[in-house]
Every structure is written in C-alpha cells, then in structure tokens.
Simulated assay, not measured.
Amino acid sequence: MSDYLQVSTATETREVGVRIAKGAVAARLAASGQVIGPVTSVFWHHGAQGSGEEWQVLLYTTAERYPQLERFVLDEHPWTNPQISAVPIVQGSTEYLEWLSRSVEGAEA
C-alpha cells in the first residue's frame, strides 16, 4: 500500500470546496488541496439518474492521516453522503513526498 494518497470529493459550490480544503490543510490533515471546476457530474441519486455542475476537491495526505481527513470531510461537508475516495500516489519526486509528510506531521514544511 502507498504511504501517500490523493483524496477527492465534490461540492456544490466553489466556496464550500475552498472551505473544506483550507480547513483540512489548517488542521494538518492534508499537505495541500486543489479546487477544480466547475465540472459536470453524472450520477445516480434516489433511484434516478441525474447530472449537475460541481467543484472537485483534491487533497494530498498520507495513508496514516486518511482516517482523520475522511472524518473531517464528512463533518464539514453539507451533503449527507458525499463522495470521498482515495487513490494511491505510487510515484513522486522525493522532495515533494518528504514535504508532504512533514506538512501533515506538523513539522516545518
């Protein structure tokens, strides 16, 4: 398993995405975050297919910090069942990955 993760969620507005990203970084649950959008999402919801405009939030963290980051996103997200998923970062520059680790550990980044 990778020690590093890219965690994603989606929000209805840019403002909510930025608030979640800023909060996760401030709490040292993520080293950085990006809010991208708007993007078009197509999904199933309450038994019907839907689509809508959303903002994608990407957060970069360690596997060790993932459980706390997931809890934070669930607590801060306005939706009752937001999409939260993580994919491993299987390669990256040594300097970047060391910075990521230091950032979530609270060490001088």
Rank of each mutant, 00 (worst) to 15 (best):
D3F: 00
Y4I: 00
Y4A: 05
Y4S: 01
L5Q: 00
Q6H: 03
Q6A: 12
Q6W: 04
V7L: 02
V7F: 06
V7E: 01
T9K: 08
T9C: 15
T13M: 13
T13R: 12
T13L: 12
R14A: 06
R14N: 03
E15K: 12
V16P: 00
G17T: 02
G17K: 00
R19A: 15
I20Y: 04
K22S: 09
G23T: 08
G23I: 04
A24T: 03
V25E: 07
V25D: 04
V25I: 11
A26L: 13
A26V: 03
L29V: 07
L29Y: 13
L29K: 11
Q34W: 05
Q34F: 07
V35M: 11
V35N: 07
P38W: 14
V39Y: 06
T40W: 06
S41I: 02
V42S: 09
F43S: 06
F43K: 01
F43M: 05
W44H: 14
H46E: 15
H46W: 06
G47E: 10
A48C: 08
Q49I: 15
S51W: 11
G52Y: 12
G52P: 10
G52W: 11
E53V: 14
E54A: 10
W55H: 13
W55G: 02
Q56T: 01
V57M: 11
L58I: 00
L59H: 05
L59Y: 05
Y60M: 12
T62Q: 01
E64T: 11
E64C: 03
Y66A: 04
Y66N: 07
Y66C: 06
Y66T: 01
P67G: 13
E70V: 08
E70L: 09
F72R: 04
V73F: 08
L74A: 08
E76N: 09
W79E: 12
T80M: 13
T80V: 12
P82G: 10
I84N: 02
I84Q: 08
V87H: 07
V87N: 00
P88D: 15
P88A: 13
P88T: 06
P88C: 03
G92S: 09
G92E: 01
S93Y: 09
T94Y: 11
E95C: 01
E95F: 10
Y96T: 05
Y96F: 13
L97A: 09
E98R: 15
E98I: 04
W99S: 08
W99E: 05
L100S: 00
S101T: 15
R102K: 15
R102F: 02
R102W: 09
S103K: 12
S103E: 13
V104S: 08
E105R: 10
G106W: 08
G106Y: 11
A107C: 02
A107V: 10
A109Y: 00
